[in-house]
Design a protein around this nucleic acid. Structure first.
Lengths: 204, 204
DNA sequence: ACAAAATATTTACAGCGTCAATATTTATGT
DNA sequence: ACATAAATATTGACGCTGTAAATATTTTGT
């Protein structure tokens, strides 16, 4: 023992990669995506600007890792929202998750962007892929609970629900909805019709 | 007459700003957003790297102008799609527009990104604001045609529809839907339930 | 204790957006 | 027509970025 970082006390810094991820999240939280820089992350941690190379071959790998944490936290928050609505109907629980989804995205816009854009170079970390898939699984389960467990088109219906909440999240983050719009209300109202739509009421 | 550019034949280049916009669009079409650079635009047009400054104080202003062209073309394409479905029901026309929307976005992903992201510095050109508002008006009209012209909540319903198609567009552009998913079919199916949802069937 | 592996630093490079100073062309007023 | 002002383009520089190579330092394994 005796390093700067508490848990993993090995090598020079003792957990630089984790420290870089945390510094990146801090930068994103404080200054948004425009402030995010590999060199700034290194500066915050107190290492040279080339030190990150040993842990992340490219800045996109660091971004990917930050996106992974975003997915992990989002899954946690959605689970909490679902639990909080445990007593209610499946539809209500589903709607509560949708609201929590948009709430998470708008509360952590920079992290959300790391989860969905900005890495079309696709330097996806294994952890990112796992976390993203876990989020997708959570979505599919939620959809299945609403449309019935034996439906063959869960994937397609999940994509439908995904598009709606992701659309709201993206539009709000980018400020592309009318400023006078009561966003929360609009989202809640839009989500209300979603379970029926997913079930295909009136479509056979 | 006697300049390099055909129409506006004045000053040194004779329409540099328009040429820069076109060069930018070309770069985006060919190489995507990662290749887009103010200096590369200048290079293509054959002017020095600082020449654009006289027309666009900042690279974001050029991006904004490119986004404006994106909105303008999109409005045109949606109008064409609506006309092509002129004989059908209002719902069918609306769905056709939604499909055309996603089609435009996925066919011009880089332009679409210039329309919706990447300028949170908000160096919005007047032309951008006008074009974006025209697109919004088109959306509201389409929604009004489906839910009824005298509804007070057109804006909220338009946001609902907007979120759905924008969500699909964004997810496809960023490659965030399962690769095996029959996207076109999923979108068509999701859009089918949208008119009823907008009308608030079963919600009073 | 020693060799090997892992980790950090230093230095360098090319590219970027932006700015200031300068040059050149076009437009304008008389 | 000509001088002058305005508009437009060039050159060179600055600080920033991500990345790479060479070097130094620390930790690990035996």
């Amino acid at each position: 023992m005796g390093s700067s970082s508490p848990n993993k006390r090995r090598y020079h810094h003792g957990g630089l990669s984790e420290a870089l991820v945390q510094a990146g999240i801090d930068i994103l939280t404080e200054g948004g995506i425009g402030q995010f820089t590999l060199r700034e992350c290194a500066r915050r941690v107190g290492v040279s600007h080339a030190a990150p190379k040993n842990h992340f071959p490219t800045v996109d790998h660091l971004k990917s890792e930050i996106g992974a944490r975003g997915f992990e936290q989002m899954v946690r928050e959605l689970a909490v929202a679902a639990d909080a609505a445990a007593g209610q109907s499946a539809d209500s629980r589903f709607i509560a998750m949708g609201i929590a989804y948009v709430r998470f995205a708008t509360a952590n816009p920079a992290a959300y962007q790391m989860m969905f854009r900005d890495q079309q170079g696709f330097a996806c970390t294994p952890r990112f892929l796992e976390a993203a898939e876990a989020a997708w699984d959570q979505l599919e389960e939620a959809v299945a609970a609403v449309i019935g467990l034996d439906r063959p088109d869960v994937e397609a219906r999940a994509a439908h629900a995904f598009a709606l909440v992701h659309g709201f999240a993206s539009l709000i983050i980018d400020g592309r909805l009318p400023p006078d719009l009561a966003t929360d209300q609009v989202i809640a109202q839009s989500l209300e019709s979603l379970p029926d739509a997913l079930r295909g009421v009136g479509t056979a």
